[in-house]
């Protein structure tokens, strides 16, 4: 019988340098498993010190209290063809070699353009004065900090934790109560998906970029 297991990327290697990691880091969100416990969201805020009002990952529920009630946790999907990266006027958003869509808060002008481009509404903006949002954008970093000296106080303050550099999984995925939220090396994640799909049959509840936007949406 297929047992699902999550493999931690770079465990063996450890250490901050990611150069050797060829494949892309991915999320997989299993709508057949997410129980809307909110663990991911709370853990994220705690680990990354996210200010109130900002959710780098949030859990959406449809048909609450009725047959077909379904939950899905929505972080930044770190899209391969990332619309946010395409529209950002100042290239504050960019792909890291390992596929993480990173943000540079030094150059971000806080225009909010990425928010409208993003399919998942991942970019977040500090709620501000009567004159609308203030400050720069914040979004899920895949717990990989930002373009600063890894583990520096500055990085922690601006971007939160850098677990990837520590060889750890993103916080949200590692606390996930039901392993609905799986993160890691695209290959490994694909294996998890495959195993679950095999156990369940067609479809399988994998949920991400492609599934989320059936053609024409």
């Amino acid at each position: 019988m297929a047992e699902t297991k999550v493999t931690v990327p770079f465990r063996q290697a450890g250490g901050p340098e990611l150069k050797y990691a060829p494949s892309r880091l991915k999320f997989y969100i299993d709508v057949k498993r997410c129980i809307e416990c909110g663990g991911c969201e709370v853990a994220c805020k705690n680990e990354n010190n996210v200010p109130a009002g900002i959710a780098r990952i949030r859990v959406v529920t449809v048909n609450e209290g009725e047959q077909g009630e379904t939950n899905v946790a929505v972080p930044c999907m770190h899209c391969s063809k990332a619309p946010c990266v395409a529209v950002c006027p100042v290239d504050a958003l960019f792909h890291r070699p390992d596929g993480i869509v990173a943000l540079n808060k030094e150059t971000c002008i806080g225009c909010g353009y990425c928010l409208y481009a993003c399919p998942f509404g991942a970019p977040q903006f500090p709620r501000g004065a009567p004159f609308g949002a203030r400050g720069v954008m914040d979004k899920c970093t895949y717990c990989a900090g930002g373009p600063e000296v890894p583990f520096s106080e500055r990085e922690r303050r601006m971007y939160g934790a850098n677990r990837i550099a520590e060889g750890k999984l993103p916080m949200c995925a590692s606390v996930c109560a039901t392993k609905a939220l799986v993160a890691g090396d695209a290959e490994e994640v694909a294996n998890v998906v495959r195993m679950r799909m095999a156990a369940r049959g067609v479809g399988g509840g994998a949920w991400g970029w492609e599934a989320a936007y059936g053609k024409g949406y």
């Binding site: 019988m1 297929a2 047992e3 699902t4 057949k32 498993r33 129980i35 809307e36 416990c37 663990g39 209290g65 009725e66 047959q67 009630e69 939950n71 109560a177 039901t178 392993k179 679950r196 156990a199 369940r200």
Partner: peptide, 27 residues
């Protein structure tokens, strides 16, 4: 919450029938 891991795994891998008896339609 953590126990749901086991319940859902049984549902997936054994095709276990899960029955919920409750005055409320809970999560």
């Amino acid at each position: 919450p953590i126990s749901m891991q086991h319940i859902l795994t049984a549902k997936e891998t054994n095709r276990a029938v899960v029955i919920s008896v409750d005055p409320r339609f809970t999560k």
